[in-house]
């Protein structure tokens, strides 16, 4: 996993949560960080814009589409996969 991706995703999540990047840890859930469903949709949008990727995400069923949003770490991992997939 590229460190640059991790840093950028942390920055985006920190901004949504109105926290410092240093306050974000990988095992936290978005709920832990106080990010609600609208904050989640905004985070997804910000990530798509930052990496120029398409995230398969439907707010009606966030678990569908294979983009794992369980924790900060799974989001970083899922973004890394999408970025890698795009490079191929």
């Amino acid at each position: 996993m590229s460190e640059a991706i991790r840093i950028k995703v942390f920055e985006i999540i920190a901004e949504q949560a109105v926290l410092d990047v240093s306050d974000i840890s990988p095992e936290q859930t978005l709920e832990d960080l106080g990010i609600d469903s609208m904050g989640l949709v905004e985070s997804i949008f910000a990530i798509e814009e930052a990496f120029d990727i398409q995230i398969p995400f439907n707010a009606n069923d966030p678990r569908q589409g294979g983009f794992d949003i369980s924790t900060v770490a799974t989001i970083v991992e899922a973004v890394s996969k999408l970025v890698a997939g795009q490079a191929q």
Binding site: I44, N58, N60
Partner: peptide, 20 residues
């Protein structure tokens, strides 16, 4: 589209598998 609440296949109100 931006809101991420739209279905790509059908509007299925009240069905457990509804997706927007």
């Amino acid at each position: 589209e931006g809101l991420r609440v739209m279905s790509k296949d059908a509007c299925r109100p009240f069905s457990a598998d509804r997706n927007g």
